[in-house]
């Protein structure tokens, strides 16, 4: 038997216990959910918990809003330390570029930035926006992107926006090593949030929906982890 895969802690309280100690390193993991389920919070916590361990993080945002606008909200979380910005965590705004380039150019831009920074943790948030821009090229782009990300020495998180009722973006899910669903459901006049590990290659993982909460102190926390 070959040895266990090296693991990279997710930074999400309670998740590592569900996935043998963390995400496989290197690997590419899709974190998907509808609006407000905590995808960006998940990604930020992943990067900033790595920064605490002196691991280099690189965050590609594909949103068309300026990075500082997104950061304005993010900095309300206690775990986001301003001293990490531009150092352990580097932000890279792809929002404007994805409207004007072809798939290969976009791959090259991402590649060049990764080679320059040599991060151990990478986030692309959200990847699904790229699909709307690239259309026919999107599937090939995803395949190439995931292959390249796997070959860099990093664990990468791709976030994927889905419509309410849709589970995950299938075209991304088939290519990645892991899929984590962030879900919201209406129960007794309240909206409750859940996390489910749908797929994690090379990993024995706890299945089923786990209740989560989002707090300003910890970001996403799996509630069973409290007890």
């Amino acid at each position: 038997m070959s040895e266990n895969l090296p693991r990279m802690p997710s930074g999400i309280n309670g998740l590592d216990e569900m996935i043998e100690g963390g995400f496989p390193f290197p690997s590419v993991v899709l974190v998907t959910g509808s609006a407000g389920t905590g995808k960006t919070t998940f990604a930020q916590k992943f990067l900033f918990s790595g920064a605490k361990m002196d691991q280099q993080g690189l965050y590609f945002t594909t949103l068309s809003e300026p990075t500082q606008w997104m950061l304005r909200y993010s900095t309300k979380f206690d775990f986001i330390k301003p001293s990490y910005f531009g150092k352990e965590v580097i932000y890279c705004d792809l929002g404007s570029v994805i409207r004007n380039v072809k798939a290969q150019d976009l791959l090259n831009i991402i590649d060049e930035k990764i080679a320059e920074i040599m991060p151990q943790r990478i986030v692309i948030d959200p990847i699904t926006v790229v699909g709307e821009m690239l259309k026919k090229e999107y599937r090939t782009f995803l395949f190439d992107l995931v292959n390249r990300l796997k070959n860099w020495q990093a664990t990468s998180i791709l976030t994927g926006e889905v419509k309410p009722g849709e589970m995950y973006p299938a075209e991304v899910a088939y290519a990645v090593d892991g899929v984590i669903l962030l879900l919201m459901s209406e129960e007794s006049d309240a909206r409750r949030k859940y996390l489910e590990v749908l797929k994690m290659r090379g990993t024995d993982h706890l299945t089923g929906k786990q209740s989560i909460d989002i707090t300003s102190n910890d970001g996403i926390i799996i509630l069973r982890a409290k007890f």
Partner: peptide, 24 residues
Amino acid sequence: RGKSLLSEREDIFDLFSYRKCYTG
């Protein structure tokens, strides 16, 4: 620290009207 040896290479990103990454 912010003055990376690669900083002069950032012209490659400008080719695509690329908004420069936030670096310290």
